[in-house]
Design a protein around this nucleic acid. Structure first.
Lengths: 328, 328
DNA sequence: TTGAAAGCGATACCAT
DNA sequence: ATGGTATCGCTTTCAA
């Protein structure tokens, strides 16, 4: 059915070996032969069967990508970045969505690992030890999580949080709530840590609420607690939570930002679409995806470097309509 | 490195053939041997190499999925459905995002096709003839597009549009604008067709605007034309466009739904999150994904059925805050 | 510079 | 019920 290397070999009047060489190590074959082979391949529409190739080279030309929830627009952005970079490097992408099911992660990774050269784990929720075990078997790059000796791409969280809080204190806010995301999310732990630090430095009162799921509904659910806490500003773990807050506030007749300021993280497209638009700290999304693939390719190229590569990307506060002066 | 069938064979004291049989056709092997093999496989952590298996069986156990833009929340939902169903059937999913690049589609399909058993094409933009050529080479199921002799999953568009327009006319609207999505999108053509039909039947004035990209920005861009058209209601090709309209209306001080009603298609999660919330016709998203995989599996099981399977799924109007009585 | 042959891991077929 | 062997498509020695 499909055109194989033999078809090309026959058409070009050479052996299969020569076809391989002409296509993958052109300098080893006579220019004339090379051209003949290439023309034959082109006319027949030949593309090597990657599975067969992988069998012998041990490389599949595929990479795996695991995300917690495609329903959160943050992740499709990362996926886009991964795809773009992977295709540039002629890799195809296996995608798996864990549906925020922490327990399913390891199994999915194991399934994927047989068919890919490496895996980009985006915001994995599993515990450190489990992650460690996995990493022993398969080349893995983490996006949005950091763990010793594993390559990772993260955002500059302390700085991101500093931008957020500075903005709020500049507006006069002194008592701020934080609605926490999943306990198992490294990003949440980091944000909490950074926030406590920064809050201390700037002597703002911090009220921690949650944990809730990193979804719109989580924000809606937390909103009333936020109001009860009598703060003038609230920071959501991510934009979806912040949007949930926004929604519930409006429903309860609490004006944003007049009565309370709302700030999120991620800068998903949605943040700019709502009214009032959402002030948020933009995280590198597509860029993280691209960087993740970069690190993975690097890892595959030199499997036994000593130090794990680590990239930390900058963030940017996007000031929009949901934050304003404190109603002192 | 990885444990192969030979390792299992040796451990169980049988031949490779027997290992295969014990694992894939258990009834053909003596219960005692079967158990021994299975135990060996389990202790060694053996999983057959799918690439190698695919080489001989002609099956990869993978399916491909092509979507135009993961940035549109509609598609992540479909992807989730595809994933869920595929994993149930023990298939892995290759994902590719074409970034609304019509020209890139065929190439991506060709690349994918070597490594998958079949492909789910979601809302492909390419022309019919091109699609036909593709379908000749690879098992393909269409989601959100219909073309003769190719299995497809679609929504009941005429009915969907009827629900939408009935709602608006019931509210007293008599002059309605439609902001069209991409000309190359089958869904857009269908909506236009259905809309003209229904508008005729119900004798409403129809103003067609566009085409614009099926994104928030497209809606923003079309909004002023909509206002200039002096309609009392507008239907967007999809929710993103409708949200763009909403946003621009608000910016221009046009009240929704007091001054103008806005209605979208898809029911992306976002639609319920904004204020006013968006009235929209809910399309089956995850369900379409699942159904797409179902049809594909069916197609793979009986490649030469005469009639292409076709599923048409129902839709549901979600009445929310963005539509109200016409200001007659 | 090129070809022949071996082999990657698994399965299908033919023996037994 | 089980084992041996050929084979899938390709790459990689090894010879020539």
């Amino acid at each position: 059915m499909a055109v194989t290397i033999k078809d090309v070999a026959r058409a070009a009047g050479v052996s299969a070996s020569t076809v391989t060489r002409a296509l993958t190590m052109p300098e080893l074959v006579h220019p004339e032969t090379r051209d003949r082979v290439r023309r034959a391949a082109a006319t027949l529409g030949y593309h090597p069967n990657r599975a067969a190739r992988g069998l012998i080279t041990g490389r599949t030309g595929n990479i795996g990508l695991l995300v917690p929830d495609l329903g959160n627009p943050f992740f499709p952005s990362v996926v886009k970045g991964v795809q773009a970079r992977a295709h540039e490097a002629d890799y195809a992408v296996f995608l798996a969505d864990t549906d925020e099911d922490e327990a399913a992660e390891a199994g999915l990774v194991r399934r994927l690992s047989k068919q890919v050269d490496g895996i980009v784990l985006c915001s994995p929720r599993m515990p450190d030890e489990e992650l460690r075990t996995l990493v022993a078997d398969t080349p893995v790059v983490l996006v949005n999580r950091r763990i010793a000796r594993v390559p990772s791409v993260t955002a500059e969280f302390p700085d991101a949080m500093r931008q957020a809080v500075s903005h709020l204190t500049a507006l006069g806010h002194r008592r701020i709530a934080y609605v926490a995301g999943p306990r198992s999310a490294w990003a949440n732990r980091e944000r909490v840590r950074a926030l406590r630090l920064v809050a201390g430095e700037m002597s703002v009162d911090l009220v921690e609420i949650g944990n809730v799921l990193p979804m719109f509904e989580g924000g809606v659910a937390a909103a009333d607690q936020v109001l009860a806490a009598r703060v003038t500003a609230v920071i959501g773990f991510n934009d979806l939570i912040a949007l949930g807050l926004l929604n519930r506030f409006t429903a309860r007749g609490v004006a944003v930002p007049a009565d309370i300021s709302v700030l999120g993280f991620d800068d998903i497209a949605l943040a700019a679409m709502v009214n009032p638009s959402l002030t948020t700290v933009a995280l590198p999304k597509e860029q993280s995806g691209r960087a993740g693939v970069d690190l993975l390719l690097q890892l595959l190229a030199e499997p036994d470097r000593q130090t794990a590569a680590r990239r930390e990307l900058p963030t940017q506060l996007m000031v929009r309509g949901s934050t304003g002066p404190a109603n002192a």
